[in-house]
């Protein structure tokens, strides 16, 4: 079964009480589920847990299962779960093209093929010819689109969106939201988004869970 499943997942600060009641949910492939909640409730911590990035200050319980495989104990880089953060987090020492090449899955072999894949991704993002640019010279919206492309090039089996539109101007937000959901749906992978913006949730057309 191709889905991202959370089974009785909860997190607590080391020695503290749980941040939220245990969560159990299933995100089928191709669907977008939104988790809502006030800031500070532990939404981003839940994303960290699913992606394998939980810091040692936290203790977690429950299981994360991706496509039938228990990934709870796997290191982040072996889970194949892509994340889109609030900030684009493009690597400042690499060009835009090299940022994408860093993400591009290793099974795309050969210089020509890899370059073509990067160029195609830039094209899809409406940024054709940007490969040699310094990421610091891009606008916020352009950076967010590169970040999505970089995540998708890694060929993830599931996607986590951690308030990816919160830092953008309201008029850009709608554009980027449409862009992200269009590309994400094409992938047909389970997508879990956390947000505190009701517009984000209604744009997905998927179920909404409140923490």
């Amino acid at each position: 079964m191709n889905a991202l499943e959370l089974r009785n997942v909860s997190v607590r600060a080391a020695g503290g009480s749980p941040l939220f009641p245990p969560v159990t949910l299933t995100v089928p492939a191709g669907a977008v589920t939104t988790i809502m909640g006030a800031s500070g409730v532990g939404k981003s911590t839940l994303i960290d847990l699913i992606g394998g990035h939980l810091s040692a200050d936290f203790e977690a319980e429950g299981r994360v299962v991706l496509n039938g495989r228990d990934v709870t104990r796997l290191p982040a880089e072996q889970r194949r779960i892509g994340i889109l953060f609030q900030d684009a987090l493009l690597f400042p020492h690499l060009s835009v093209g090299d940022n994408l090449a860093f993400g591009l899955a290793a099974n795309v072999r050969g210089r020509v093929a890899r370059r073509a894949a990067v160029a195609a991704a830039l094209d899809q993002a409406g940024l054709a010819g940007f490969a040699d640019r310094d990421p610091a010279t891009l606008s916020g919206g352009q950076r967010a689109r590169v970040a999505l492309m970089r995540t998708l090039l890694a060929d993830p089996l599931a996607l986590l969106l951690d308030e990816p539109f919160a830092r953008l101007d309201p008029d850009r937000r709608a554009d980027l939201r449409a862009f992200v959901f269009r590309h994400v749906r094409e992938r047909g992978v389970p997508v879990l988004m956390v947000s505190h913006d009701p517009d984000d949730a209604s744009a997905t057309g998927g179920p909404v869970v409140t923490l």
Partner: peptide, 11 residues
């Protein structure tokens, strides 16, 4: 998060 972003890309 730079480190996390790289890990999420499979590095």
């Amino acid at each position: 998060r730079m480190d996390r972003a790289a890990a999420a890309l499979g590095a």
